[in-house]
């Protein structure tokens, strides 16, 4: 068995005195898509923040490719291939699509390569290349955010609430792209509230509620028990 690209062991994190993560154990195998499901407030986004270095854990261990990572900054992690697509897309609304993508060339990747990567995954962005990002639809903004992340050649992609505020058709389209990305060998941890589409593309799934991972398994298994788990956990 190969070393997982991400392993979280007994992770605890808190906002002040409110503990949000209460001993999370999660593993993302190399090249796999893992769906992290759970209700709102379960601690999913907080977990991604801790993994990506935007927030410091109070205790517990994070191992990346068998190496203990402690106190790493987000930009350090981004340089080594850990890329995050945050919740809410976070595009620059007053810049055009091309200008948003051009910003990624400052990370050391040539502009042409950034454009090639973005437009190959999302042809629609090529059509909107000179349109202000703020005028794009929600799905297109999500595409732009994902394109921007992909331009940094990620090895582990953290997707936070990819489907938030998007029409189901657009969500399906985005997840098709996720499958393409996974096929290229990128490991993906996708956080979702809406399980259906995520479970369709995921290799493994985990259910999180109350700051803990309460169930893990194959997508089919999780699909069967998820309602009970979430409702039971909510109750």
């Amino acid at each position: 068995m190969s070393v997982p690209i991400l392993e979280v062991v007994d992770l605890h994190a808190a906002y002040g005195r409110i503990e949000v993560l209460r001993g999370v154990d999660l593993t993302v195998p190399r090249g796999a898509v893992v769906a992290l499901l759970g209700p709102n407030g379960a601690g999913k986004s907080t977990l991604l923040k801790v993994i990506s270095g935007q927030m410091e854990q109070t205790s517990g261990d994070i191992h990346l490719s068998g190496v203990h990572v402690s106190g790493a900054k987000p930009d350090d992690l981004a340089r080594v291939g850990l890329t995050t697509v945050p919740e809410g897309r976070s595009v620059f609304p007053n810049l055009t699509v091309e200008e948003n993508l051009l910003l990624m060339s400052y990370a050391g990747v040539s502009a042409d390569k950034v454009y090639d990567t973005a437009y190959s995954y999302f042809p629609r962005l090529y059509e909107r290349a000179f349109q202000l990002a703020g005028t794009l639809s929600g799905g297109e903004q999500q595409m732009l955010a994902m394109a921007r992340a992909l331009s940094s050649d990620p090895a582990l992609l953290l997707l936070d609430e990819l489907s938030m505020g998007l029409a189901p058709l657009i969500v399906d389209e985005l997840y098709d792209t996720v499958v393409q990305i996974a096929d290229s060998g990128v490991s993906i941890l996708v956080v979702e509230q809406f399980a259906r589409t995520a479970l369709e593309v995921a290799d493994y799934a985990a259910v999180m509620t109350g700051g803990r991972i309460v169930a893990t398994g194959e997508p089919d298994e999780i699909n069967e028990i998820m309602a009970d788990v979430i409702l039971g956990g909510a109750a």
Partner: peptide
């Protein structure tokens, strides 16, 4: 630094 005896650092995931 690690209770599991792993190396400490930031690996190149690629």
């Amino acid at each position: 630094g690690c209770a599991y005896g792993l190396k400490v650092g930031i690996p190149d995931l690629r």
